[in-house]
Simulated scan of single mutants.
Amino acid sequence: MSIIDRGRNLINTVRTGAQNAVEKTQQVANTVTDKVTEGAQRVGQFVDGFEDKATSKARELNNQFFGGSKPDRAFDGHLVGAGGQTFPPGTSLSDVPGVTPRNNPNPSETFIYVNGISNTKDQQFNSMQAIADRTGAKVVGIHNSTEGMVADLAQCVKDKLDKGHNPAVDSMADTVYSELKAGRDVHLFAHSQGALVTSRALNDVANRLRIEDGMSKADVEKLLSKVKVETFGGAAANFPDGPQYVHYVNNKDLVPTWFGQGNGSGVDEWARNGGRGAVIHRFEHGSGINGAHGLGDAYLPQRVPFDQARAGQFN
Rank of each mutant, 00 (worst) to 15 (best):
residue 243 P to H: 07
residue 290 N to P: 12
residue 93 L to E: 12
residue 168 A to M: 01
residue 281 H to P: 04
residue 311 A to W: 03
residue 113 Y to N: 12
residue 24 K to E: 15
residue 112 I to N: 06
residue 278 A to S: 13
residue 44 G to Q: 10
residue 48 D to P: 03
residue 71 P to E: 09
residue 285 H to K: 14
residue 217 K to L: 11
residue 242 G to E: 08
residue 116 G to M: 03
residue 283 F to A: 03
residue 308 Q to R: 15
residue 154 A to P: 00
residue 16 T to E: 09
residue 106 N to G: 05
residue 233 G to K: 02
residue 224 L to N: 08
residue 44 G to D: 04
residue 276 R to E: 13
residue 17 G to K: 08
residue 296 G to A: 14
residue 229 V to C: 04
residue 203 N to F: 06
residue 113 Y to M: 11
residue 260 G to I: 14
residue 42 R to C: 07
residue 251 N to L: 01
residue 10 L to I: 04
residue 13 T to A: 12
residue 206 A to F: 04
residue 123 Q to I: 04
residue 203 N to S: 06
residue 54 A to N: 14
residue 271 A to M: 06
residue 83 G to E: 13
residue 257 T to C: 08
residue 254 L to A: 10
residue 106 N to D: 15
residue 211 I to H: 09
residue 92 S to N: 14
residue 193 Q to S: 08
residue 297 D to W: 05
residue 204 D to W: 01
residue 168 A to T: 01
residue 16 T to W: 11
residue 293 H to W: 01
residue 117 I to F: 07
residue 277 G to P: 09
residue 303 R to E: 03
residue 58 A to L: 11
residue 48 D to H: 14
residue 181 K to E: 14
residue 115 N to E: 13
residue 26 Q to A: 14
residue 89 P to E: 03
residue 70 K to P: 02
residue 236 A to K: 10
residue 166 N to I: 10
residue 97 P to R: 05
residue 79 L to Q: 07
residue 98 G to D: 12
residue 301 P to H: 08
residue 95 D to Q: 15
residue 236 A to W: 07
residue 7 G to N: 09
residue 57 K to R: 13
residue 119 N to I: 00
residue 259 F to T: 09
residue 175 T to V: 15
residue 181 K to P: 07
residue 211 I to C: 01
residue 78 H to F: 09
residue 122 D to W: 00
residue 57 K to D: 15
residue 31 T to E: 12
residue 58 A to C: 05
residue 276 R to I: 06
residue 44 G to T: 03
residue 286 G to F: 05
residue 118 S to H: 09
residue 221 E to A: 12
residue 271 A to F: 04
residue 176 V to C: 02
